[in-house]
Design a protein around this nucleic acid. Structure first.
Ligand code: DCP
Ligand code: MG
Length: 749
DNA sequence: CTCGATCGATTTA
DNA sequence: TTAAATCGA
């Protein structure tokens, strides 16, 4: 039986290459891709090899890179909706995958820029074609191949590489078993594939060929960039003897650190030398077995046949002062994220004939992170935004300050997943594909799918502006397929304001769960019965880690279960304390600000009112078509503001004329009642509060406009397009994009 | 009630 | 930094 042959292809400094193809003038010079620019020149996420030679690294700040390497070109990641948008790189990654698919039927997309290929079959074909005779094979076809353990000899690097591959080729043909020959054929296939990738996409890459994923990945990294490396099985022991374990896939994190710290291991060889009982005692038999094999170069993990991501998501960090501290901010950013995800989901549905069933919200606060899942009723940004907000709102622990968000969100992300085939006619025979789908390389691949018909993708969109009832479900953009295990138990409007902050305290009872590292540890503590948390041999890593992190190491003599429970109650308690403090501080701050600014407000009536032109340009310059397209609600607001403006004859007007029902005048409590929130807003914050409403409304208005544009262009197949109408649409759209930027400025600072 | 859904943790790019 | 996958309970 021939051995499995795995190929790992990894693009070189991928995002930079993408930008170099887009703008070839930066080629050959130091360059890096940065995200954002305002804070210290942005964060670097990819660095080309010229810049690496100057010490520039990932995660470095743009400013620091410029200091380190003044000649460096920093290319910015596109920003859309106030966040980084990685679509360009995803699309380029797909280009590469598509080329690889021409050469091999079993491909696992491992990330945006790398893929594993099981080329066992392809190797076998090649072996049959080439007679097992070295004379039929020219090793010079392997002009970018290195061989681990066959470093060769000579003056230059290239000379050594060349003699190495030459000698290994001779050896492979002379060897009695064909394992090395298979790897050699793998190298040949890899050379061909990489050449095709370069010719077709313009991107360079590196590759590794070995008998499993772990070794292929490891090999790939040995001679980057633009080179490939093969790792014969016989070379493993000597190579592992000096290879740092932390560079091996799966050992680069906490687990690897334990091996280093507790077992004094530095290399894979050190790990391989550990006795089974030693490993079993610490990690349990399953993990011990896995690790022992792993450390000897054995890895059974199959290459799964999957070219599409299983989830589509996006997120954004809100660092330091950017933390989301109010409901409108959360709602707004949720909206931005939802828009991107829905846009990508919609394209995914057309391209891949599948529909995501669930949305997962993930949020980080100072107190930790949580995630919540909900069903996706339709690919409709408004609906999803509202549903998500309803779910998210349950985690907002603000009772005294109804418009605040506590604790502030440091990160908000969304992920859509649990894809099912799109049954709504459009997608042809895709259902049969999904039924047969599995992770097995022998299964049908997406490549075999018929192309989808994009002309059929517009039905249902015309309803985007009206609320869709369940009766309309088949006509509307609703999904009727499959079951919905998740339910959103309350809708946005109902849950928007109501929250007393008490339900949640009772709900904080989740068990600590384990990750890759923790689950590899044996729970001797459990088997041995009661353990005290002071016991240095205490085995539960989750608890240990949490204690270290939170300084909650205390108590003794209780059972393991008690530890978990006390852990949780401690956490809950500390949470409560923190929140009360937060709320109190915020309340104090708010009150002080209100009083202070009230004073100045009385002194100069309009000075610190928000200029409406910060949201909209002066009315005369608002595109009438934009005006028309806005919801009546917003038009009225704008007109009101403008009218007031004219009446006063001033250049400025109070946005706070919007939505005010009452002006409550008490000596120490000046506030407005916002009729949208039905909540009292401190005077000093009312302008900003209303800005949020306007921005949120505009977000919605722009969204429905965008939808109708999509609909319009899609419809032109069946309907004769009117020149005028189309032109107007385009202009209007451009205008909107410009105008939405003004709104963004409220949130993007 | 059971097993699918859910969620946190870990790892990687 | 912004993704995405996997595992166990
Ligand atoms: N922490 C990370 C790691 C990677 N990436 C992105 C940018 C990279 O260009 C791309 C691929 O990641 P790689 O680790 O493969 O790094 P590069 O392709 O940039 O360089 P190399 O030539 O070392 O593969 O993923 C990222 O955004 N954040
Ligand atoms: Mg790469």
């Amino acid at each position: 039986m021939n051995p499995k042959i795995v190929l790992l292809v990894d693009m070189d400094c991928f995002y930079v290459q993408v930008e170099e193809r887009f703008n070839p003038t930066i080629k050959g010079k130091p360059a890096a891709v940065v995200q954002y620019k305002n804070y210290k020149g942005g964060g670097i996420i990819a660095v080309n090899y010229e810049a690496r030679a100057h010490g520039v690294t990932r995660s470095m700040r743009g400013d620091d890179a410029k200091e380190q390497c003044p000649d460096i070109t920093l290319v910015r990641v596109p920003e859309e909706r106030g966040k980084a948008n990685l679509t360009k790189y995803r699309d380029c990654g797909k280009e590469v995958i598509d080329v690889l698919c021409r050469h091999c039927s079993c491909i696992e997309r491992a990330s945006i820029d790398e893929a594993y290929l099981d080329i066992t079959n392809e190797v076998h074909k090649r072996l049959e074609e080439i007679q097992l005779n070295e004379k039929d094979f020219n090793f010079e076809a392997l002009s970018s191949t290195y061989v681990v353990g066959w470093e060769g000899s000579g003056q230059t690097e290239e000379e050594k590489r060349n003699t190495g591959i030459r000698d290994f080729t001779r050896h492979a043909f002379e060897s009695t078993d064909n394992q090395d020959l298979c790897i050699l054929m793998g190298a040949l296939i890899a050379e061909e594939m990489r050449k095709d990738v370069l010719q077709t996409t313009g991107f360079k890459c590196s590759a590794g060929v070995a008998v499993n994923k772990m070794l292929a990945k490891l090999a790939c990294g040995l001679h980057k960039p633009n080179r490939q490396t093969i790792l014969p099985v016989a070379s493993i022991p000597e190579f592992f003897a000096s290879f740092p374990l932390k560079k091996v896939r799966n050992l680069g994190g906490k687990f690897g650190r334990v091996l280093m710290d507790e077992f004094n291991c530095k290399t894979m060889g050190d790990v391989a030398a550990l006795s089974f009982p030693t490993l079993e005692k610490r990690f349990g038999s399953e993990t011990a077995t896995w690790l022992q094999r792993y450390a000897n170069g054995i890895d059974d993990e199959d290459v799964s046949n999957r070219r599409l991501p299983k989830s589509i998501g996006c997120g954004k960090n809100f660092n330091g002062p950017e933390a989301l501290t109010t409901k409108p901010k959360v709602l707004y950013w949720l909206g931005q994220l939802v828009e991107e995800v829905v846009e990508r989901l919609t394209k995914d549905r057309q391209d891949n004939g599948r529909i995501a069933q669930t949305m997962t919200i993930h949020a980080y606060t100072d107190e930790g992170s949580f995630s919540r899942a909900l069903p996706i009723r339709a690919y409709d940004a408004d609906k999803i935004q509202k549903d998500c907000f309803s779910v998210l709102q349950k985690e907002n622990r603000t009772s005294s300050e109804p418009e605040l968000w506590i604790p502030p969100l440091k990160n908000l992300s969304l992920s859509a997943g649990k894809f099912q085939p799109d049954e709504s006619k459009k997608s042809g025979r895709i259902d049969s594909f999904f039924k047969r789908m599995s992770n097995n390389k022998n299964e049908v691949s997406l490549q075999a799918l018929p192309p989808n018909n994009p002309t059929l993708e517009t039905s249902g969109l015309e309803t985007e502006n009206s609320d869709i009832e369940f009766d309309d479900i088949d006509e509307a953009d609703e999904f009727t397929q499959g079951t919905c295990p998740l339910e959103v138990d309350s809708v946005f409007e109902k849950v928007d304001i109501s929250n007393d902050g008490k339900e949640r305290l009772e709900k904080v009872e989740s068990k600590p769960s384990k990750g890759f590292f923790a689950r590899k540890l044996e729970h001797k503590a459990l088997e041995e019965g009661p353990t005290t948390s002071n016991d240095p041999t205490f085995k539960d890593v989750n608890l240990q880690e949490k204690r270290l992190e939170e300084g909650l190491f205390s108590g003794s003599g209780s059972s393991f279960k008690d530890h978990i429970e006390s852990e949780n109650s401690e956490r809950t308690f500390s949470k409560k304390l923190k929140d009360n403090d937060n709320a109190l501080a915020l309340a104090k701050e708010t009150g002080a600000k209100a009083l202070y600014s009230l004073k100045s407000k009385i002194e100069s009536e309009v000075d610190d009112l928000v200029d409406i032109s910060e949201i909209f340009p002066p009315n005369s310059k608002i595109d009438p078509e934009l005006m028309e397209s806005l919801p009546v609600e917003i038009r009225v607001k704008l007109n009101n503001a403008e009218t007031l403006n004219k009446a006063k004859g001033a250049g400025k007007t109070a946005v706070s004329t919007i939505g005010i029902n009452k002006f409550i005048s008490k000596a120490d409590n000046f506030s407005f009642l916002c009729n949208k929130c039905n909540v009292n807003i401190p005077l000093v914050e009312f302008d900003e509060h209303n800005d949020f409403h306007i921005a949120l409304d505009l977000q919605k208005a722009l969204r429905s406009e965008t939808s109708s544009v999509i609909l319009g262009s899609a419809n032109k197949r069946s309907t004769e397009p009117k020149e005028k109408g189309r032109k107007r649409k385009t202009d209007q759209n451009t205008d909107k994009l410009i105008k939405s930027r003004r709104i963004d400025e409220f949130f993007h600072k």
